[in-house]
């Protein structure tokens, strides 16, 4: 398990932290199609979290179609075409934007203003 960091100090539940990082690694192609993931217990040991937490993470990854499990063997990264990945990425982007837009909306920021903000931040990067 490379480049996965778990923090006990932040509010996001641990299974969510791990899910976020693995799913983004899958989408970025850092984890390749049909690559085998470590067993639940090994991953728990390596990341120093509970077995139950990893079980939950793996279930969520499977539910989201990011991995598949072969009975008695283990879990593997699902193979994606580039289009699939783009679509998944888009979904993820939409999800995170949704939260931001919701909170902006609660401050009564108009749609035009939001677009303006986004483009100004984008240009500045």
């Amino acid at each position: 398990m490379k480049n996965i960091v778990v923090r006990n100090t932040i509010q996001t539940p641990i299974y969510q932290q791990i899910y976020d990082q693995i799913s983004s690694q899958i989408m970025n192609g850092d984890l390749e199609a049909d690559q085998m993931l470590p067993s639940i217990r090994t991953a728990a040991k390596e990341l120093r979290v509970s077995v139950i937490t990893i079980k939950k993470t793996w279930e969520l990854l499977e539910e989201q179609g990011l991995i598949y499990t072969v009975q008695g063997k283990g879990s593997y990264v699902r193979g994606y075409t580039k289009d699939d990945l783009d679509e998944l990425k888009l979904e993820k982007i939409k999800d995170s934007l949704k939260a931001v837009i919701e909170s902006l909306k609660s401050y009564n920021v108009s749609k035009e203003k939001m677009i303006e903000i986004i483009s100004s931040i984008y240009d500045a990067l």
Binding site: P13, I14, Y15, R48, S50, V51, I52, T53
Partner: peptide, 20 residues
């Protein structure tokens, strides 16, 4: 490392379930 946690206080179990 714990999967399950049992919490005892004054000789009684307050909680016993998975950590999450």
């Amino acid at each position: 490392c714990a999967d399950y946690v049992t919490f005892i206080k004054d000789g009684r179990i307050i909680e016993s379930c998975s950590k999450d």
